[in-house]
Nucleic acid binder design. Structure first.
Lengths: 197, 197
DNA sequence: TCCGTAATTGAGTGATCGTTCAAATAATTT
DNA sequence: AAATTATTTGAACGATCACTCAATTACGGA
């Protein structure tokens, strides 16, 4: 009964996410979203409530994609370190996307008094840290990572490396420069992981 | 001759910089600036041209302050590494300021099609890299840093560490967590600098 | 085929955006 | 004190902002 939906919710959120990712929350107008989603304001509001809610759903979608990519790379690769390397390079060298992390961008560009969005971003970054810990736990069991390694602390170091690399890569330096930084970052992580320090 | 200026330009830019730093370019309205600077729109436009130009001047002021702080900390400390540590901790633990770098934020939140602001930010980050190289050169001469060290590459690593730490610190994690990450980052840099790898 | 219902439309809301400029103000010079 | 010049003011501009809602459209069931 009733008219059937014209828009696939996931596809719509994907499009909105990409636009927000490029232009930021306050840098993206509802007019921009209308064009990007090919939806009229009434439809957008009927489906998502308001701009902030659409942004939140975009963040959820982003986290879902990123976490899934991380897990699949790590679990399908020969080792945790191999998978991490593939994951990081995919983040940095996929031309269509901005380099830097949407969640980090959210912490950067959302006004400090909008606690809702900031807390959400903080929480999701913390959740990613947990995901890293979970995957490293498996690598400890398999013997790749030393049992002496403080994996919670190392997960935080990995976060700093990834966020730093992605932010730095926004400068559009030559690929060789970024690749060298990736290799160094992976070495740093590997040294901590194998306990040779 | 003529009426004397009511506003000190440097003080005004300092205020604008702090507001932009907190709320971003598109997150800061001229209305916000009027309140913050205690100036009427006519005065702002007569003094700075437009919002974008005021932002550019804020970035210049930010870079000036940051570069000067870095140089003075490094040059007044016992060693390059000591000075770097003091500098980084000052960036992370000064409560009044946002943690993350204004230039990195600019790359993150300014729309990709505003090439003027993005290029400016990229250029200034590159200039900071040169400043790091210059200071490390002195440390090579003084014997603190190994002559075998690729200081240009290390300067980039330092940038990634600083940007990553500052962005991560936006999450408002406990100070002990951040301090631990700082210690680790400094260890990483020191290992590279002294050639023990 | 007509009705009930759900989804979509797009003109229109008041508020706020960045910006302008004629008028007012305060200093110096004549 | 009058004229000149530099600076500041704030009402007002058209454009755009996020958002609303009555009308329209497209479907399934009766």
């Amino acid at each position: 009964m009733g008219r059937q939906q014209r828009y696939d919710r996931t596809e719509t959120v994907e499009k909105a996410m990409n636009l927000f990712w490029r232009s930021g929350f306050s840098g993206t107008s509802m007019r921009d979203l209308e064009d990007c989603l090919d939806m009229r304001p009434g439809s957008i509001y009927a489906n998502f409530g308001n701009k902030e809610h659409l942004y939140i759903e975009s963040m959820d979608h982003y986290a879902d994609k990123t976490f899934t990519a991380f897990k699949s790379h790590v679990e399908n690769a020969e080792s945790f370190m191999d998978g991490l390397g593939i994951f990081i390079r995919q983040l940095l060298f996929t031309k269509d996307n901005p380099c830097s992390c949407l969640l980090a961008k959210t912490l950067a560009d959302i006004n400090p008094d909008n606690a809702a969005l900031r807390n959400k971003a903080s929480l999701m970054i913390a959740e990613f840290e947990d995901t890293i810990v979970t995957e490293m736990d498996k690598a400890v069991t398999s013997g790749e990572i030393s049992e002496n390694c403080d994996i919670r602390a190392l997960a935080r170091i990995i976060q700093v490396q990834i966020i730093g690399l992605r932010s730095y890569a926004e400068m559009q330096k030559p690929k060789a420069v970024i690749e060298k930084l990736v290799i160094d970052a992976l070495k740093i992580i590997n040294t901590k992981a194998t306990g040779k320090f």
